[in-house]
Simulated scan of single mutants.
Amino acid sequence: MKLAVVAANGKSGRLIVKEAVARGLDVTAVVRGENETEALHTLKKDIMDLTKEDLAGFDVVIDAFGIWDPNKMDQHSATLGHLSDILSGSKTRLLVVGGAGSLYVDKDHKTMISDLPDFSEAYLPTAVGMKNSLNALRKRDDVRWTYVSPAAEFIADGERTGKYILAGEEFTTNEKGESKISYADYTLAMVDEAVSGSHIHQRISVLGK
């Protein structure tokens, strides 16, 4: 399996590359600067400069792009839209490192976590930016996409337990009433999905046990 990880030098990107390489996948790190990952292959380009030819031949492209500047939240939609356009009509699957703010808290799927009055104002711009990019992705039936949301508490330096709970569109907690997952366990779920291709045209979510 040939796998490209876009924005591979980021926190989640590096761990995704590490997990995929450990499983023997043929991994290319797509980065703007020097490759800081364990990938043996490097494609040095900005996301917005990538072409259809650049990504031809990959089985899966994982979009690990993230930005926290509240003045640049439109880049979530712009970059994901560009990747979708250049993968349109191809067999290549597009997996997206998503956010938790767009998970629904009701069965009717009318209210998201980020709509709640006690949602952190500091995280609201990012949540809205990522929600907008997800909404745009839902309209694409020309791309074989899967959007993977983490739990509400996404722990960068958390341990890799090797276990996770796979959920769907709704906010979910484990038996302890917790909604949290380490980057390492999230990465495990992401690479599992890359290998299986079980949730095309779906948003899924993962949380720790």
Rank of each mutant, 00 (worst) to 15 (best):
S149E: 02
E153H: 11
G129W: 05
D118P: 02
A156S: 12
Y147E: 04
H82M: 03
S133I: 02
A167L: 02
A167E: 10
W145L: 04
R144N: 14
L80Q: 10
D115S: 02
P125K: 04
A136T: 12
E159F: 09
P125E: 09
A78F: 01
K72A: 15
S77Q: 01
T92N: 08
V96P: 10
N71S: 15
T79N: 12
L116D: 01
R138D: 06
E159R: 14
Y104G: 07
I86F: 08
L103D: 04
F154I: 12
V128A: 07
L103T: 13
A156V: 14
M73H: 03
V96Q: 03
T173R: 11
T172C: 08
T161W: 02
L124F: 01
G129S: 07
D142I: 09
E169T: 10
L87V: 12
I165M: 11
Y164H: 14
T126H: 01
H109E: 15
L83F: 01
D141M: 08
I165E: 11
N132C: 06
K107E: 15
L94M: 11
A100N: 15
Y164L: 09
E170H: 14
T92R: 00
Y123V: 08
T173Y: 03
K72T: 12
S149C: 13
G81T: 06
T111W: 09
K107Q: 14
F154A: 13
T126W: 05
D115M: 07
L116I: 08
L94H: 00
K91L: 03
N71I: 06
G158S: 12
K131V: 00
G89C: 01
K139T: 14
H76T: 01
S133E: 07
Q75V: 02
S88A: 15
A136S: 15
G101R: 10
F171P: 00
F119N: 01
L103E: 11
K131R: 14
M112H: 15
G98H: 03
R160T: 08
E121L: 02
D108T: 07
V143C: 06
K72Q: 14
D157P: 05
Q75M: 11
P150G: 08
E169Y: 10
M73Q: 12
H82I: 10
F171K: 03
S133Q: 09
L95E: 04
D115Q: 00
T111L: 15
M112V: 12
A156C: 10
L134N: 03
F119S: 02
R160H: 12
I165Q: 06
F171Y: 15
N71L: 00
I113K: 03
V105W: 02
I155D: 09
A127D: 06
R93P: 00
H82T: 06
Y147M: 07
E159S: 14
F154Y: 13
E121G: 03
G101F: 06
T79C: 09
P150V: 05
A100Y: 11
L83V: 00
P150M: 05
K131W: 11
D157N: 12
G101Y: 09
G162S: 12
G168Q: 10
D118F: 05
E170L: 10
G81P: 00
K110A: 13
M73V: 15
